[in-house]
């Protein structure tokens, strides 16, 4: 059986996690990526939640960042102020974010579509996303790849990627390295060292270049060359991943 798009995204996001990383996770696919990494390549991974649940090891999948199964399986339960303070201190190696929009410099929008004062669509807002994007060492973005979600410039920068290019994060005094990976249902992307613009790393099996170009409002670097196909992992790992979410709470597509 081949991997679904959600499963491919989870495995690709999990690949960025290194053993002994401290990861800050929200809800949804990032929870699955972290749990998949912990069961495979990163058994010493520690998960912290912005709610203040530290090193939680829930037996059941949490349904939210403050869900009770996290609280009774943490080594420490503290405040959001502490948890996000750990990020600012530089203790968090990797954080996973989603967004309504992502642009060519990896800036993320979770605040409004349209003008801030008169929004066409009001979104939930930053939460801890800006805090993670400012201070976590590496940011991994997980997103559906739709044309409206990939504009040249987001309508509102909730979470800083590389802002408008090289040197901008440093100029504003931001601590972390910024986004290192964007995982979508069409492919896997990184950022060009020199220009800080989005660059393709691999294309998912069965996806065409045209599909990616059609669904992106800016030019992605590296699209004209030979693009590797995202490698599917073994059937054994596939079964393991599926066993982590038997009720399909997070893996839907």
């Amino acid at each position: 059986m081949s991997w679904t798009k959600d499963e491919l995204m989870i495995a690709a996001a999990a690949e960025v996690i290194e053993n002994r990383d401290i990861a800050l996770v929200g809800i949804g696919l990032p929870v699955m990526a972290a749990m998949f990494a912990k069961h495979t390549t990163a058994p010493d991974l520690k998960l912290i939640y912005e709610s203040g649940a530290i090193d939680a090891q829930p037996k059941d999948l949490p349904q939210g960042p403050g869900d009770f199964p996290l609280l009774r399986t943490s080594t420490m339960t503290t405040s959001l102020f502490d948890a996000l303070g750990y990020v600012q201190r530089g203790k968090v190696d990797i954080a996973f974010l989603g967004a309504a929009e992502i642009d060519q410099y990896g800036n993320l929008n979770a605040t409004v579509i349209g003008d801030y004062m008169h929004p066409d669509c009001r979104l939930p807002g930053s939460g801890g996303a800006n805090d993670m994007g400012s201070g976590a060492r590496k940011i991994v973005v997980i997103s559906r790849h739709l044309r409206r979600k990939f504009p040249a410039r987001v309508s509102y920068i909730t979470t800083p990627g590389f802002l408008c290019g090289p040197g901008e994060r440093e100029r504003h005094g931001l601590g972390g390295e910024g986004p290192v990976r964007v995982v979508t249902d069409l492919g896997i992307f990184g950022f060009d060292d020199e220009t800080k613009r989005m660059r393709i790393l691999s294309i998912h099996p069965g996806v065409s270049k045209q599909e990616i170009i059609r669904n992106t409002q800016f030019e992605i670097l590296g699209m004209d060359g030979e693009i590797p196909v995202t490698a599917e992992k073994s059937e054994e790992l596939h079964r393991l991943l599926q066993s982590l979410d038997p009720q399909h709470i997070y893996i839907k597509n």
């Binding site: 996000l84 303070g85 990020v87 409004v112 669509c121 939460g127 805090d131």
Partner: peptide
């Protein structure tokens, strides 16, 4: 999304100022 909050923000019946969790805390 929270539908009441979003509708009020879109219709301009509430004014908003956006922060991050850590910023406002």
């Amino acid at each position: 999304r929270c539908p009441n909050f979003c509708r009020c923000a879109q219709q301009g019946t509430i004014r908003t100022e956006d922060y991050s969790h850590f910023g406002i805390t």
